[in-house]
């Protein structure tokens, strides 16, 4: 998958949840959305991008991925 595109998609999601006044709810929103709609291979790659330094990732995306890593990590098939 195109890593830059995945990061952009995640940042777009974070931009929507930026209006949420409660930070915890915002992070849950970002992670929940990615979990609900992204295929496992996309989530796996996004987490790998985070582990590689998260270049270009919005801070809220980094925080959401870190805080909800277990939720987002696909089961190994």
């Amino acid at each position: 998958m195109d890593g830059k595109k995945l990061v952009k998609m995640a940042n777009d999601i974070a931009a929507f949840f930026a209006a949420e006044p409660e930070p915890k709810v915002a992070l849950e929103g970002i992670a929940g959305h990615i979990k609900k709609f992204w295929a496992p291979r996309m989530r796996r790659e996004l987490l790998a991008l985070l582990d590689a330094g998260g270049d270009g990732m919005a801070p809220a995306v980094r925080e959401a991925l870190a805080a909800h890593r277990r939720l987002l990590q696909p089961a190994t098939r």
């Binding site: 709609f37 295929a39 291979r41 996309m42």
Partner: peptide, 11 residues
């Protein structure tokens, strides 16, 4: 788990 959307399929 969700599958790929059309633009994801292209990528």
């Amino acid at each position: 788990e969700p599958g790929l959307r059309i633009p994801n399929m292209f990528d």
